[in-house]
Design a protein around this nucleic acid. Sequence first.
DNA 1: TTTACAAACTGGAGCGCTCTAGATTACCGT
DNA 2: ACGGTAATCTAGAGCGCTCCAGTTTGTAAA
Lengths: 326, 326
Amino acid sequence: MEDVAREAGVSRSLVSLAYRGAPGVSAATRHRILDAGRRLNYTPNQIAARLAGRGGNTFGVFLQDLHNDLFADVYDGVREIAEADGKHLVLAVGTIDGRRDAVSLQTLEQSRVDVIIATGVQLSNADVRETAGRVPLVSVARLVPGVDSVWSDNHFGARLAIEHLIGLGHRRIVFLANPPSDGYLDRRRGYIDAMRDAGLLERVVTTTYARATAALDAGVVLDSADAPTAVFAHNDQAALGVLDALAVRGLSAGRDVSVIGYDNSSVSRAPGTALTTVDIHSQSLGRNAAITAMRRLAEPAAQPITHSSMPSLVIRGSTGPVGPAR
Amino acid sequence: MEDVAREAGVSRSLVSLAYRGAPGVSAATRHRILDAGRRLNYTPNQIAARLAGRGGNTFGVFLQDLHNDLFADVYDGVREIAEADGKHLVLAVGTIDGRRDAVSLQTLEQSRVDVIIATGVQLSNADVRETAGRVPLVSVARLVPGVDSVWSDNHFGARLAIEHLIGLGHRRIVFLANPPSDGYLDRRRGYIDAMRDAGLLERVVTTTYARATAALDAGVVLDSADAPTAVFAHNDQAALGVLDALAVRGLSAGRDVSVIGYDNSSVSRAPGTALTTVDIHSQSLGRNAAITAMRRLAEPAAQPITHSSMPSLVIRGSTGPVGPAR
DNA sequence: TTTACAAACTGGAGCGCTCTAGATTACCGT
DNA sequence: ACGGTAATCTAGAGCGCTCCAGTTTGTAAA
């Protein structure tokens, strides 16, 4: 920067302003500076800028796993808003078993991002709250009491799914559940409540977040004596696993067994998949998370913000009336 | 850090060493320091560390798109190696149309990553070479002359695919191609060469990197008068698009029309998809990219490294003998 | 011409760390 | 007891930028 300043015959400060597009630099001088920079092959040093600067323009984004489309959808939403506002995004990726979550969040913290937008964190509410105590954090698609949350009503969504199945005549409906943990219990509860209300027997089978495991666990259920006529999966990845298990058995989704997912991640939209699912409007969740993050930065001391939204049912080919066969 | 030093009764330098787990700090002192840090709620500042430090432990990773499993696979491979070596990873995500690639790479450059590992860049060879001139760069799954590349022989892979189809009796085989651009022409050439060698007529239909577009373009082909009995897609995403187009038309992949993809991204493995594809061993590509990056850091002036590997065919359910019907 | 005020520009302090070179302490054998 | 080596520890410079508090220049009103 020193060199560029000398080359352009101005002070370092002015070079800084010019590169940031800040006001207070005449058009002619700005042009002269950028030209000099180009001649000297100068690239501003983001790192130094972030150390010296006041901050406020870097968002950290935590994503559980890159193999799950949902998180890509959320990211798209965050990016749309953040980018329009000139914010930088720093990514941290977790693992499907959640074992790296703490480390990944710590990385973001140590990179001094101004706010963390976290989706798919598998830490306990208490742990999330703890990091949120040190750096502003907005939780996406999960309600963490006391922490900014952009959230979709999972209890209601699960109800929506079950009522759809019941409407189709299904009575033996199993819930293929995520590992029980703080913040991810409401879909399960929604299922149980909906089943009880209908006077049906609930049956919960716990699986993991991995598609392959879900396929395995679904397989066991499908092969059991009292196999269900419908399975409600805790998310789309798991539902795809169910579809896998069906395919292996030569069974047809929607005809032989109905399967319904959750998230409406973009993969479920594909005609080849045609998964009936509960839409949490993930991209919009991402957008709202970014907006919430900005609000938080503007007012660091404000009360925790909770943005709730209602999911909706998207009916595709993987659900259908209960057939005579099973 | 100053505060922690005072609290622990040592110098700032020693606090630095203690937090980095560097040698030259007695066990007792280290413990005392970390304890003091905990008491004061201290978190090291990565940004300041990177500004002051010598560098060499931060990798930048460019991924084309989070919706394509291939890139997640590559990332997994990179992460495995990088993490084992204590390297930090900084991510930059492009867009499916490649329009943001230059900006994303610039971001990495400005974050002063020590080396960029790039997969799915849609810039020209010249442009890639230019950034590679300013910051060490290793290109993954694409051969950029003059730039470190970890690459799989696409020409050979395409041949493998076509020969498999020909072996099954197919003669009308269309190639659903990616937009022609530097570095992504070899699958197309491999297809053409293989077809010519077999005395067959080549038919190339260009599509994009988006699954939905591929479905559309495949649909047009499938509906045409001289519809093919097999389609070879430039990658798995496009192949999934073909599967979508088939599903919409009530056609069965493998029975009515054979479809073969490219990449063996993890989604193609799922039993519900069962896509025959060419395996580029993406995770291994990622691992080798990380290793190459380290080599480059160790010897900045060495000749460009090219790591080639041979793809292999993975036969699943989406290909089969040409039927009587079509 | 003088005064006033905005626009354009500058110098220097400081962000929180790492690194180098040197000062201190501990420990060993003789 | 003593030099010598290794293990600890410390002071201070500097990484490349932004920010603050000015100083200078330009321009319009008096």
